[in-house]
Structure formats: structure tokens, C-alpha cells
Design a protein around this nucleic acid. Structure first.
Length: 490
RNA sequence: GUCUCCUUCGUCUAGUGGUUAGGACACCGGGUUUUCAUCCCGGCAGCAGGGGUUCGACUCCCCUAGGAGAUGCCA
């Protein structure tokens, strides 16, 4: 049988890193099994619907670089792929349910529901609907309809017995029917289905074979099984993935860190790094390998390498992966990825001048092994485009020297640098070594003085290359500025 | 409260009755290096607790504890 799996986000917010991981596992499973991966939009909540969220789904997966085989934009003959366009189907099947006695109309007001919940909480009783409308007579119904009372449709959960199913990861899951949400709403008063109903009908009608979703759905799975049975449909295979938690051990959410994929894109994470990292959240290949391309994952992924326990999202490890992938990037590619960040931070203009072209090309090899995320580039190379905002005199003066001494050293450096452009790095370095020896200070201290003079910071890309990018004119300008600063001090 | 699921270093994980419990991130040392970073070497650190089963338990069973999720006219 052809494997068919789906990712079914609801467009109520931006794509979430946890959701993307669910999507990835579904995609990988489909590829590994030679099956189909389907995107279905579960837009049945009209209050929370966001047009932007829909765009975000497309943008996210374009960026990640993997796509569905069927979806709103790719017809696969099981459409439409948006639930809001499938209302007739839900209606039809709901009628079946009512006719066969599995569902009923409920006229309870939100206020009534609220009040019984309060009582239940107060009395420490199990929460849930009291099945008040389950045995309404036809008379009652007619009267309520005549009064124009709004209604919903509820599914009859048997009060006795139990429901069990097999989970590919967790094994047999059993729940007594008593503990299942008593008679949940399947059609809301606005005529739209709730998740449970639409999900079951769609998975069946789209011939989904495996439902791979997060474990937060585990407790409603028995209800879904009951629905399948009420319809007389075969229950698909289930696999409930371990949850992804934030650093605080709670369900990953805005409160405990970045969760929206756009945030990761903006900070400068690479899709390869994100994919590689999240693939390892609850899944592993063996005892040591941890670098995988999407292509490799497509071949290697399997459900039986899944972990049951929830995984805490580790931003530091993601950073490490990202740094690794940045280092693997061809120079030209990294350059193109860096330019938007330099533009955004106004270090360069929208149209690069020849000089900017030169500097941008030259800085790439200088920062490549220093970047953890792409947005790190700006503070690292700011000095190449901007004057130093303010010097910290303390950082300028080497150990065992005073301002006057420092001034003299810097003057010597300035002289030494005169024929910089004609010399190789090795030659210049030798000159610096000699100078340091002559002055009786460490080479590191000597160069630190120059480094701070040019960059305003004790941490910078390699000095000599930086000078070449900066140009002798600006270099001398900064040296002279610091010289003045020092003479004012001594 | 109730129900369900989960439990190996701080974190991600390997491990499926006999291992000095392995790897990675992080952290801490050391080396290379003009700073930082990279790179290399080394170190710290774990089977939640208690009962069984067994010649032998991280591995199987039970209990306890802890964690998470669910308990909606949200998904």
C-alpha cells in the first residue's frame, strides 16, 4: 500500500519550529517509504484565522527547501486541501452520524457550559459536558429550533467500555471511555467542524496511511478512533512524536525562547542547519553520526529510531551546527548571504559601490570561521565601513606602558606601515617582531595597540588582512586620531 | 483534581540481560595562533529512588517520585 502522510497546520500563527519538525518527519518518512507527503490547511477556526499565517507556511517551506507532493498549490486529486473548502463533505458525514445515532444536536448556551464547569471545578469532579442534550425529545428540539436557539452537534462517546489503539512508537494505548471527553462538539454553531471531526474525515478521504503528529494529540487519539469506528472506517496507523520542550522544560512557546521560523531566518540560521538539528530532536541514526543532509535523511529516516522522551531545544547546539554549515559554504555563496545583513544594518548601500564590492568580497574569508549566525557579521566588520565611535584609552595602552610610551610606540608603527601595501604578510609580521623586540614589549601587545586603534575593539578579524581591506589612508587616519588622543592624555 | 504518556551526563542521544555505560553540545584545562574564532589534545559529568525476576540487570516486571501533555463551539 502506498504510504500517504500529511502535515496539517492551522493558519492561526507563524510556523513554529516544533511544527516544522513534525512536517519534516512526515516528509522524511514519505520519502524513505517512497510515499506521498501532503499539506492540508486546517482553517476551521475562523476567529483565529490569519491570512499572513498562510503566506508564512509557503515561505517557511520554500526556505527550508522541501515541499509537499499534494497541497493547495499542487493538486493530487484528493483536494481541496483547505478544510474551509470541504464543508459539504463534513456536513454529509455528520448527517450520517446523526442518522446512525452517533451524534446529536446540543442547544446548551456557552453560559450554561461555563457554569457547569465552575461547579465541576469547585466540587473537584471530572471536567466536561454533562450530556444534557443527549436525550432531548423531538418536541424539545422543535421548540428550541423555533425559538431560534443556536445549536452545535456533539458526538456520542460511549460512557462504558474502553478504546485502545496501536501507536507505532508507544505501543498499545488504552483509555477507558469514561475518561474520554464526554460528547465533544464536532460541528460548531457557525457550521464549521472542529478539529476532531474534520481531521478524521480528511485523513480518511485523503487516504492517509500514517498519522505522524506530536504527542500533545495522544490523549485525543482514542476519540478519533471512536469516530473512525462510528463511520465504519479503517483506523490509520498512528505515531505520536515526542514533544519539543523549551529550556524550562515546558512546551516550547514564545515565552521560553525563539520559536517562530521567521525569527531563525532573520537571525541568520541556514536551512541545512535547522533541518539537521531538528531531525535529531527525538530521532537518531546511530551512536555517533550527527551530520546529515536532507537527501541523506530522506534515505536514512525511520520510525523505529525515534525516541519516546520529550526533547529540550538546545539553542547552543543549533548555533554549533549553524557555525559548521556556515564554514562549509563556498565563499561566493556566503558573500551573497551576508550582503542583506550588511545592507540592513546600513553598513553598505542598496547598490554596492566598487569600493564596497571590494571590501565585502574581502571580508568573507575573514569572518567565515567566526560566524555562528549570519547576523553576527555586522559587529565584526563594522570598523571596515565606519569610523570608531569612541576609544577606550585603557584598552589602548599596553601593559607596562603609559600614554606617552604608547604614543611613541604607535608612531613607530605608523612609520613601519608606510610601505605596507608592497610587502607580504610575512614580511610585515617580521618587521613587527623586530619592533617589538626593540621596544621590549610582546608582539601581542604591540599588535593589540594597533588592533584597538583600527577597530576600537580588542577582538577583531586578523589584523593584517583587515588593514588591507581598510586601506592605508583610513589606517593612518585612525592612527593619527589615536595619537592625538594620547598626546592629550600625557 | 482526573486521565494518558515519559524518565541514561546540565542538554541532545547510543545502548534492547554480561560494556571500563559510547558519542555530541555546553563547561573547564592545555596546545597552535597577532586578539577572537577555527583546529588539535585532555578533563568534568549520567543509568531518578525502592522492591522484585535472574547466575547476572541501564536493559524485564511492580511501586514510589519527578516531568510533560490533555481535560474547549483552539488546533
Amino acid at each position: 500500500m502506498l504510504v500517504r502522510v500529511r502535515y496539517a497546520p492551522s493558519p492561526t500563527g507563524y510556523q513554529h519550529i516544533g511544527g516544522v519538525r513534525t512536517a519534516l518527519f512526515n516528509y522524511l518518512f514519505a520519502r524513505a517509504k517512497g510515499g506521498r507527503f501532503i499539506l492540508r490547511i486546517e482553517d476551521t477556526d475562523r476567529d483565529r484565522f490569519m491570512e499572513k499565517a498562510l503566506e508564512d507556511i509557503y515561505r517557511t517551506f520554500d526556505w527550508l527547501g522541501f515541499h509537499w507532493d499534494e497541497g493547495p498549490d499542487i493538486d493530487g486529486s484528493y483536494g481541496p486541501y483547505c478544510q474551509s473548502e470541504r464543508l459539504k463533505l463534513y456536513q454529509k458525514h455528520t448527517e450520517e452520524l446523526i442518522n446512525s445515532g452517533y451524534a446529536y444536536f446540543c442547544y446548551c448556551s456557552p453560559e450554561r457550559l461555563e457554569s457547569i464547569r465552575k461547579i465541576q471545578q469547585k466540587e473537584k469532579m471530572p471536567l466536561g459536558y454533562d450530556r444534557h442534550c443527549r436525550n432531548l425529545t423531538d418536541e424539545d428540539r422543535k421548540r428550541l429550533e423555533k425559538q431560534g436557539t443556536k445549536s452545535v452537534i456533539r458526538f456520542k462517546v460511549p460512557p462504558d467500555g474502553s478504546t485502545s489503539f496501536h501507536d507505532e512508537l508507544l505501543g498499545t494505548i488504552e483509555k477507558t471511555n469514561y475518561d474520554i471527553n464526554p460528547d465533544p462538539v464536532i460541528i460548531k454553531s457557525d457550521g464549521f467542524p472542529t478539529y476532531h471531526l474534520a481531521n478524521v474525515i480528511d485523513d480518511h478521504s485523503m487516504k492517509i496511511t500514517h498519522i505522524i503528529r506530536a504527542q500533545e494529540w495522544l490523549s485525543s487519539a482514542p476519540l478519533h478512533v471512536l469516530l473512525y469506528r462510528a463511520f465504519g472506517w479503517e483506523v490509520p496507523k498512528y505515531c505520536h512524536l515526542p514533544m519539543v520542550l523549551g529550556q524550562d522544560g515546558q512546551k516550547l512557546s514564545k515565552r521560553n525562547g525563539a520559536t517562530r521560523v521567521v525569527e531563525f531566518i532573520e537571525k541568520g540560521y541556514l536551512p541545512e542547519a535547522i533541518i539537521n538539528y531538528i531531525a535529531l530532536l527525538g530521532w537518531s541514526f546511530d551512536d555517533s553520526r550527527e551530520f546529515f543532509t536532507l537527501k541523506e535523511l530522506e534515505e536514512l529516516f525511520s520510525l523505529d529510531r525515534l525516541n519516546k522522551a520529550p526533547a529540550v531545544f538546545d539553542y547552543k547546539k543549533l548555533d554549533w551546527f549553524n557555525g559548521n554549515y556556515i564554514r562549509k559554504l563556498p565563499k561566493e555563496e556566503l558573500r551573497e548571504k551576508l550582503i542583506p545583513y550588511l545592507k540592513q544594518d546600513k553598513l553598505i548601500g542598496d547598490q554596492l559601490t566598487a569600493e564596497e564590492e571590494r571590501i565585502v568580497t574581502g571580508l568573507v574569508p575573514l569572518v567565515q570561521e567566526r560566524l555562528q549566525v549570519l547576523s553576527d557579521v555586522t559587529p565584526m566588520v563594522r570598523f571596515l565601513f565606519r569610523e570608531v565611535a569612541e576609544y577606550n584609552i585603557e584598552e589602548l595602552i599596553p601593559q607596562k606602558l603609559d600614554a606617552a610610551g604608547t604614543e611613541r610606540v604607535l608612531e613607530k608603527i605608523s612609520v613601519l606601515l608606510q610601505d605596507f601595501s608592497g610587502s607580504s604578510n610575512e614580511e610585515i609580521e617580521q618587521l613587527f617582531r623586530d619592533l617589538a623586540k626593540e621596544l621590549g614589549i610582546k608582539l601581542g601587545g604591540l599588535l593589540m595597540l594597533l588592533r584597538v586603534t583600527l577597530t576600537g575593539s580588542r577582538v577583531s578579524p586578523p589584523l593584517l588582512e583587515s588593514i588591507r581591506l581598510l586601506g592605508l589612508k583610513k589606517t593612518m587616519g585612525r592612527i593619527n586620531r589615536v595619537l592625538k588622543l594620547l598626546s592629550g592624555r600625557s
